[in-house]
Design a protein around this nucleic acid. Sequence first.
DNA 1: GACTTTTAAATGTCTGACAAATGAAAATTG
DNA 2: CAATTTTCATTTGTCAGACATTTAAAAGTC
Lengths: 243, 243
Amino acid sequence: MKIDTTSPDLSAQIAKAIREAIISGELSVNDRLPSEAELSEQFDVGRTTVREALKRLAAQNLIRTQRGAFGGAFVNKQSFQDAQAAHITTSTLLLSMNDVSFDTAWEARFALEAACAPLSCQRRTADHLATMRAEIHRQGQPGLTDEAFCASDVAFHRALVDGAQNPVLSYQLAGAVEAIEPLMNMITFTARSREAICDMHTSIADGLEAQDSKTVEAGLSALETYTLTLARDVITSRDQQRR
Amino acid sequence: MKIDTTSPDLSAQIAKAIREAIISGELSVNDRLPSEAELSEQFDVGRTTVREALKRLAAQNLIRTQRGAFGGAFVNKQSFQDAQAAHITTSTLLLSMNDVSFDTAWEARFALEAACAPLSCQRRTADHLATMRAEIHRQGQPGLTDEAFCASDVAFHRALVDGAQNPVLSYQLAGAVEAIEPLMNMITFTARSREAICDMHTSIADGLEAQDSKTVEAGLSALETYTLTLARDVITSRDQQRR
DNA sequence: GACTTTTAAATGTCTGACAAATGAAAATTG
DNA sequence: CAATTTTCATTTGTCAGACATTTAAAAGTC
């Protein structure tokens, strides 16, 4: 592991070297890295620089640190849970910073969700169904705020995705499903549209319960079209107001 | 923005505070953060601690720094390209560190790819088709190493996904498609299986060219089943050798 | 007005110091 | 001897101060 000590980004270089050692398997889960003092000797830099490199790795969840004798920096096991949270954050920022149209994000989300539908039909448990029914019930409550409705909507679709019982799918989908929530919140639904959405959710849940993927896909497709129409109306009327 | 100066993770707290300011929109793209000296005053911590916080954010691509007068830390625009690279790294580590079975990863990958197929049929350009044909041709070359074959395979499928012309889809899919490559490399294909794979790739490309999503989906499905069978054979024989 | 020099501001790095946590080893005690 | 307490070395967390380097604006020069 060599670095160019003349370049002014030593901590980035050191982080990269260690990161690559982890990715290549040279360092395994729970392996202990050399202490900061040892690393600073090895790389011939100050301890400050080493620490900045370690913080970079910690920010990526690649290592954790522990104080005290026999403490140090240890290679982290990537958990689906943590990775998912980070993935959602990044996806959300990507959408908000890149002027991604609602159409594009919505299309991606439903295309991916539809891919889960057949698997979820096969494997969904009573738990998944119960979650979905509970969320549908919540969505029917009159006093619900728009934010709470959207959150419940996300929970409903997450249950559908999780029903496929494939952690890789759940992880990848989380980004698409959750990141769109802020965009959804911009489109405030009327009480009437909520009722229609609940009906479609019920139809989807019925299909999953009956393990009938045709019904589920039809319900998802209807939901996609319906929401897209609503969204376009909202955007059109907003543009008109702006004139 | 307040932090608990008695807790021993000041830099993480500061990073979190700034991160949330970015996510909430309080700080916008290209906004300049206060200088390190100013931040260290605001948070009442040393400059070292502030710098560690900033390095954390830099590791997540949330900020960039620039030296000199009128330099400083600026909020980064998240680019799909950078986010995709990070996403692939994380996905790869997730698979390798969590004993995800080949079956699970493979199922997720094909379910997601199949979701892109109809869209790609509609929108793929001549460029995408040309890339796919070129990769098929490369895959037929006899001297190709296993690694190169797998890389070409990834490029082929990436072209299919990109054909949907939806950056959100491409971003999400990249994780699933690329992260499985190391697992694929473990399964060394014989020359004969390569031929069969090329045939299926050709069938998929033909379907895309004819904008016939049925053919594409059939090709993908055949490829999924075929590779899965191969993989199971390899794993079974490997287990037998171990006895 | 065009060019050069100066200067102030900012990040990048290093050193040395001390605080705090932590587990092992040694000392103490019953 | 066994259980408990104390000591101690190690390691991370934080700070202050220093200097190098970069950078663009400001001042000076022709």
